[in-house]
């Protein structure tokens, strides 16, 4: 399999109106079309009120925590 072309996607859902939208998981997919199918088929344990899938490299990171042992030089 050619895994080089796979991209990371994150799945965000809202269980019902008024609740917060939370990140519930992630997966790898080759394109946005199949990512929408994977999200619905893999994370189908609830009847979500809202579901969104985002390509991870499209997320703009503002602040990212350091690794737990970063100060000791562990990456």
């Amino acid at each position: 399999m050619n895994y080089q072309a796979l991209k990371d996607y994150d799945v965000f859902t809202r269980i019902q109106r008024g609740e917060s939208i939370i990140q519930i998981g992630s997966f790898k997919a080759p394109d946005d079309d199949i990512a929408t199918v994977y999200a619905q088929k893999i994370y189908d344990e609830q009847d979500w009120a809202e579901m969104q899938v985002v390509r991870r490299d499209h997320i703009i990171k503002i602040k990212v925590p350091e690794g737990v042992f970063a100060q000791k030089g562990v990456k």
Binding site: M1, Y3, F27, K41
Partner: peptide, 10 residues
């Protein structure tokens, strides 16, 4: 892969 398998069953 896992994604393909889980989706296949669904």
């Amino acid at each position: 892969n896992l994604e393909a398998t889980l989706s296949s069953v669904a």
